[in-house]
């Protein structure tokens, strides 16, 4: 049977690969990614399941699922020319396990859309750049609509995480699975709450601090109660990406992080949790 060996919160700021290549391993971003990377490696995963919010690149307004599972043997990314440049990779996946996650999810009442022929944007490619730099670890993306209201509720995303865990643990192969939830807690991109002269801004730093406090203290119910659509979107147009971290938390028993640190300039946090 497959098992979850670790869970991680990881940012996906598009220019981070460029920043770390330019500024070197001493910059804050490199050091924070190194903290979760060493725990990721210590967990010795065979496969990654990543909860992700697509930025209207994999999906668009013609077809915008609330939840979707990528079921394929491989996909490509990034498809959105992240600032500073990033090579496009072919990323292996695991169609069998992905189809199983979808089958069991639908049976349990989660209407998981199917996507088979797709590419992903920086929001999957950037975390993989840091966690699996050779892009050879099979990765299954589970997409959560976190930008365009109506958003799924935080409770529903947490329950989806619980269901994904059950699906993984009922899979026949003895795979070691790492779960990643990626995104910002407060970030506005190209909307009115940006900082003048830049593409983004962090309109609600106090919310980032509050979310980190809930995470540090294992107050997941309080986090889920607080993370309403209104609260998340008041923290910026990308504030709903918190749902990916909440779904990730649904996959694990021990919700006290081994490591957690915010990066306030970007409104997100890095975290690592033990597996089950």
């Amino acid at each position: 049977m497959a098992q979850i060996v670790g869970a991680f919160a990881a940012p996906h700021t598009p220019f981070f690969p460029w920043r770390v290549e330019t500024e070197g391993s001493d910059c804050q971003t490199a050091r924070l990614f190194a903290e979760i990377k060493k725990r990721f490696d210590a967990a010795r995963p065979d496969l990654v399941v990543i909860f992700d919010t697509d930025h209207l690149n994999t999906f668009f307004f013609d077809n915008l699922p609330i939840f979707a599972v990528g079921v394929t043997d491989h996909f490509t990314g990034p498809n959105d020319e992240p600032r500073g440049g990033m090579k496009v990779h072919t990323i292996p996946s695991h169609a069998g396990l992905a189809a199983h996650i979808r089958r069991q999810g639908v049976d349990a009442g989660f209407d998981l859309a199917l996507v088979q022929d797709f590419s992903v944007d920086h929001s999957v490619a950037v975390p993989l750049y840091f966690l699996t730099p050779d892009f050879r670890m099979p990765t299954i993306p589970i997409f959560i609509s976190g930008h365009v209201p109506p958003l799924p509720s935080a409770r529903r995303c947490f329950e989806l995480g619980r269901q994904v865990r059950l699906s993984i643990e009922s899979w026949k192969e003895p795979l070691r699975v790492a779960i990643v939830g990626t995104g910002s807690f407060s970030l506005e991109v190209w909307g009115p709450k940006i900082k003048r002269g830049t593409s983004d801004g962090v309109p609600a730093p106090e919310w980032v601090t509050q979310v980190c406090r809930y995470l540090e203290n294992d107050q997941i119910d309080a986090l889920i109660e607080a993370a309403t659509e209104k609260r998340m979107l008041a923290a910026g147009s990308a504030g709903g990406e918190l749902l990916n971290v909440i779904a990730m938390l649904g996959t694990i028993d021990n919700k006290v992080p081994e490591f957690i640190a915010p990066e306030m300039a970007h409104g997100h946090a890095y975290g690592a949790w033990k597996g089950n």
Partner: peptide, 11 residues
Amino acid sequence: VNAFLMGYLCR
């Protein structure tokens, strides 16, 4: 319009 997409004009 979606601001994230409109931002490409500036980018």
